[in-house]
Structures are given as C-alpha cells and as structure tokens.
Design a protein around this nucleic acid. Sequence first.
DNA 1: GTTTTATCTGAACATATGTTCAGATAGCGT
DNA 2: ACGCTATCTGAACATATGTTCAGATAAAAC
Lengths: 195, 195
Amino acid sequence: MARTQGSHSDITGPRIQAAALELFARHGYAAVSMRQIAAQVGVQAGALYNYIPDKQTLLFRLMRDHMETLLDTRRTQAGSGDPEARLRDFVRFHIRFHLERPDAVFIAYMELRNLSPENFARIEELRGDYERDLQDILRDGSAAGVFSVPDTKLATLGVIAMLNGVNTWYRSGGRLSLDEVEAVYWSMVRKAVAA
Amino acid sequence: MARTQGSHSDITGPRIQAAALELFARHGYAAVSMRQIAAQVGVQAGALYNYIPDKQTLLFRLMRDHMETLLDTRRTQAGSGDPEARLRDFVRFHIRFHLERPDAVFIAYMELRNLSPENFARIEELRGDYERDLQDILRDGSAAGVFSVPDTKLATLGVIAMLNGVNTWYRSGGRLSLDEVEAVYWSMVRKAVAA
DNA sequence: GTTTTATCTGAACATATGTTCAGATAGCGT
DNA sequence: ACGCTATCTGAACATATGTTCAGATAAAAC
C-alpha cells in the first residue's frame, strides 16, 4: 500500500510543520520523535523525508519562519510619530503578536541550544534585527529628551524580557482582557523609560 | 573490577548532581543520557542508581534544591524598612543570586515541562512562594502610596521576567560590572512602579 | 586478619531512535 | 485507456536509550 486517498504535498507539508510546532512546544525538540510527528499527521515516519531533509532542519525552519513572520508583520505595522507613540505601538504589537502564536514563541527561545551552530547564528541575526527596532526607538527618545534610560541596550533587553513574560501566564478568557494586559504593560514600560 | 580507588558516596553523590546540572543546562534534559552523566563523573551508568531512583527524580532534585536554596538565602537576607528599600534589596538580591548559578536557573525554568505532574506542582508551589515575597512588597508600597502599579500580580511577574532576562546576556568581565547592572535594573524597576 | 558492607563494573534487557529505500499505488497529463 | 510521477508504506539499519542485577573489590568494622 502507498499513496492513500487524498494525499497531497500541499496539505502534508504544512501539516508536518503544524504537528512539529505543537509537539516541540509541548514536549521539547529532543523529546519528540519523528514517529510521533508522523502519527499526528497520519502518515508513516518515512514520508516526512519527502518534505524535510532531517529533524534539525525541521526545527530550524519553524524558528526561521517565525522570526521572518515577526519581522515582516512588524514592518507593515511600524508607524511613525514621536518616540513615545512608537514605543507604545511596539509594546502593543509585541504583546499581541506573541500571544497569538505561543507555540512558535516558546520554541523560538527554548530550543536555541538544539540548533546547529550555523542555524543558531542565522536565528540570532534575525533576533538582533528585531531588538534593533526597539533600541532605535529608545535611542531616538533618549536623544530627544523624552526618555531617560541608563543604558539603551540593557533597556531594550529589559523591556523585551518583561513583555515576553506575558506568554508564560496569559490565558485568553482569564482575569484580564488583551486590551487590559496591553495597557498594564504599556504603563510599566512607559514609566520605566520616562525622563 | 568494582569499587575503584577513592570511591565514596559522599563524593560521588554531589558529583552526579553537578554533572547533571551542567549537562542538562547545556543540552537539555531529554538530550542528555545517563551514560553521558556517568562518563562525566567517571563511573559506569549503573552506578548512578545507587544515588537516584531514576532520571526524572534527578531532574526534580536539582530543581527542588535550587528553589529551596533560593528561598532560604532570601530569608536570611530579606531586610525590613520602607517598601522602596525592600524593593531595592529584592532587585539586587535577585540579580546577584541568579547570576551566581546560571545553570540551575536555566534548568529551573526551561525543564518544567519535563517534570511529572506531581513534581511540577511541587516546584510551582516553591516558585509561588518566591513571587509572593515580591508581591507583598509591591502591595505594601501601593498601600502606602509610594508605588503605583495597575495590577500587583502582573507587576510582580513583569519585574521578575525583566530581571530574569539578565541571565541571558550577562557575562562576567563584559562591558558592565555586576554593580552597574544592578544599578541599571534598579533604576528601571524603581521608575516602572513609581507613584 | 577476617568478615561484612558499601560501592562499582560489565553485561544484558527490551525498546526507541533518525534515516534510508525498494516497492506499491493513486491521480495526473495525454 | 494508459503510462508517468508524486507520494506514501513497511521493513530494515545501526545505534542509543533507561534501568536492572549478579558478581567483584576496596574500605570499614570487628
């Protein structure tokens, strides 16, 4: 038997990525076997290798796609205006974007050590692009005198770390709505960098 | 052959924990085999089972010991005074304590998903104790009017997330000294919760 | 000096791993 | 109607996994 009914590359490819995303996020890259991924897709393990060269590349593509989606989406939404408005937009964008895809976010910063050195470097480069975006805002705001941060780089990392924390506890339908969460964090960030 | 020279329970026990700590932090719990741990200790894999019932318990003990050390150390250093002084002490304590043991910190929040449900619940309880410490400070400060946070619980999580970020980039001998890092983060935290 | 005991080895167990590949088949183009 | 090719199966490969345990030996107890 082979090529069961309804098998199509266009369908199986994305389903493999989706299954891997969910399983890697839940159990971790090293703890998930190719057979588990295949089972979730409804296929034998060997079939996966029509779509990916190996497990490592599967992980890398998930992370790369996530980072590129992050950068692309940000680019289309990045507004202009004074530094404070830009910072507020960044905070709101970051929270919303990350809460919409918790699995990809989780993987993108939990599985870095499972990347090969070359793949790690490529992901870190994309991450640097994103951080630079925020750092520019803080730099411009500091230059204009509306922000006062002791160290632009550390403030960047501090703000992002704080915002990333949302993903660890937020559950939709919980005590706070998404708008409220955004407001709370924006309040803290605004004050933290205020002049 | 068996019981090679100098073998002692008092020595091997801690060495197993130390080896597991380093290897789990570097490669992840699931990616590290018992044979790798044994090799780092200089012993055969079977010998590990004189000290631990299984791999899962080894992970749990590392995390439990870390959390208990955290709570115990904090208790001996927790000062009194006005809320702002207590918050400053907390920030300084948190940064210093966590930077001193990056491996244990890394494991304690990266390997939660590899704990059995019962073990997970026990670690989360200890984590809750620690967070409550900070939350009490913020609550007292808010009540006294020296702090103004939109939500005490979220501020707690936000501050801790921000502080935890230090471990991802700080390297001793880097651009900033430990004292400088503490000052920078204290500045941001102080302003973020200021009235 | 002899017995006891704590500690470790080395081999074994059953099962799981990532990956490959010859062969099978369903749907496409003709 | 028919061949072609993309897609999948099922079995196999070599190796790795956590854990157990009988037996060996060094140190401790007497």
